[in-house]
Amino acid sequence: METRSIMIVGVGGQGSLLASRLLGNVLLAQGYDVKVSEVHGMSQRGGSVVTYVKYGDEVFSPVIEKGEADVIISFEQLEAARWLPYLKKGGKLITSTRKLDPMPVITGNAEYPENIIEKIKAAGIQVTAADALSLAEEAGNPKASNVVLMGVVAASTDFDDKLWQDAIEQCVPPKFLELNKKAFELGRKAAV
């Protein structure tokens, strides 16, 4: 199988590392060769962050370049717009409707673009949008938005549910397991 590429983008602190590890574990359990590339250090502090997940028979490069991603999963609207050029022709965007002002917008030096999701759809791109924050709050903690979004992703794949459940158990501390499983379920239902 040719290598497939998924990008997870968002704002540092939104939990993209956990999301990419979940996905990576599911794909490995599915029997694929997998590479997951993360960003640590300074960019994690509220900056724009991106993780790459690639899978197939044999994956070489751990990174994804412009026009290469089959799917982009975005935790925030502006980040969806920023990383859009990385989507390949015919690729799919799954995004949270969450908006977080970056510092240049806060300080009044730039404006947050309007109607981001509509504009991306108008460009002919297939978009699934979900209010991950509200669903995470419904599950009990706004921080679980990342796992909500993975539920949305799960709804669009045909991987066995057990693989996802196992991956959640592997990647989440026991204390937060129930919360995250609930968040995952809410995401999956929202996508249908």
Partner: peptide
């Protein structure tokens, strides 16, 4: 070179910040 679609509009940068 890969083909791609850019976002139609200005995308402000998001530098890292103190939490």
């Amino acid at each position: 070179k890969n083909e791609f679609t850019a976002f139609d509009g200005n995308v402000p940068v998001r530098p890292p910040v103190m939490c």
